[in-house]
């Protein structure tokens, strides 16, 4: 038993958890609004979009690839699904079905090009980001969609309860989708055979190929899953914003990447856990939320986030280097 505990305390997740807990305790002590149900619910709702994308991107990073195009995929999926929903009564199921089909198709397009052209996935997905986004704006002329169907505008509101101050709470669409996405990703990576194959591919692609893994199939699955998650995230975001603006999601891709990497996923593949990704997303969200609650001008938000990322990646790299040195001696 002590050995498992020892291994746990050495892991990246442990340190990240410690930082998150200390930061939360500090904020609880320093402000009286941080640890309120209201604030935590708001936090959950507002991180939904980035969190769901982080779950998808984690799988791609574990696989040893990278995807930059997911914000463009999300924009396309959102726009097409809600354009159809505006005119035809397709209902919730229809909205998700259309969005997910578009997302998965875009993901498969990425996978096919990476596999056929054999250039690095960063370059392919930068190109496809431009292709998806450019075509979307060209065809739609950048028009907003504001008149959404009533059921969509209302969202979901399950298990309502009222706290002592009389504020109503309920499980909303954003929180539900966020939890489901992370749970699905956890099941995929840890409880299925395919998940282990994805990890193996990320660890050593050539070895995995020689062991007889179906590389193209796995690649399709991973990028398709990323597209699927992008679609889910886009619906969550559209419901929250109560409108669709095709230009608003682009530019968020590197922030999501930063959150996942903060959670310990390696860009060279084979490493990364769902728990780590959750903590990475949480750390950035709590940091931003805390700075606002502490009364720091929101103009300084990004600066602190950037500094935390720099500190985290430097600390991780240094500790890894020390461990390697320890192994060598």
């Amino acid at each position: 038993m002590p050995k498992t505990i020892q291994r746990w305390t050495r892991s990246h997740e442990f340190w990240l958890l410690a930082v998150v807990v200390i930061l939360s305790m500090f904020l609880t002590a320093a402000t009286d609004s941080f640890l309120t149900l209201q604030n935590l619910f708001d936090l959950l709702t507002s991180t939904s979009f980035a969190g769901i994308l982080a779950a998808g991107l984690l799988v791609v990073l574990v696989f040893g690839g990278i995807d930059i195009s997911f914000t463009a995929i999300a924009s396309v999926a959102q726009y097409v699904a809600l354009t159809i929903a505006k005119t035809y009564p397709i209902g919730w199921f229809g909205v998700f079905f259309v969005a997910c089909c578009i997302g998965i198709l875009c993901g498969l397009f990425n996978a096919a090009i990476i596999h056929k052209v054999r250039i690095s996935s960063v370059i392919v997905t930068i190109s496809t980001l431009n292709i998806f986004y450019g075509s979307l704006i060209y065809i739609t002329r950048g028009d907003y969609i504001t008149s959404l169907p009533t059921y969509f505008r209302e969202g979901i509101w399950w298990f309502e309860f009222t706290d002592s101050n009389g504020f109503p709470y309920a499980i909303n669409l954003q929180a539900l989708l966020l939890v489901v996405s992370f749970f699905m990703t956890w099941v995929l990576l840890n409880k299925t055979n395919i998940g282990r194959q994805i990890c193996a591919m990320g660890g050593n692609e050539i070895a995995a190929e020689r062991l007889g893994f179906h590389v193209f199939g796995l690649r399709c699955l991973v990028y398709g899953y990323m597209g699927f998650m992008a679609a889910i995230a886009s619906i969550s975001q559209a419901q929250l914003a109560q409108s669709v603006t095709p230009t608003t999601l682009i530019g968020k891709e590197l922030e999501v990447l930063a959150a996942v990497v903060l959670g310990g996923a390696s860009l060279t593949g084979g490493k990364g856990t769902v728990f780590g990704a959750v903590l990475g997303v949480m750390l950035i969200a709590i940091l931003q939320n805390g700075l606002i609650l502490l009364g720091v001008s929101s103009y300084w938000n990004q600066f602190f986030v950037g500094c935390v990322i720099l500190l985290a990646v430097s600390a991780t790299a240094l500790s890894q280097r020390r461990r390697h040195a320890g192994l060598a001696s």
Binding site: E255, V261, L267, G306, L310, V313, S314, L318
Partner: peptide, 14 residues
């Protein structure tokens, strides 16, 4: 020994 993408991503945001 930080990978260039991560280091420059951090300085970009900072």
């Amino acid at each position: 020994g930080v990978s260039p993408i991560l280091a420059t991503l951090g300085t970009m945001i900072a």
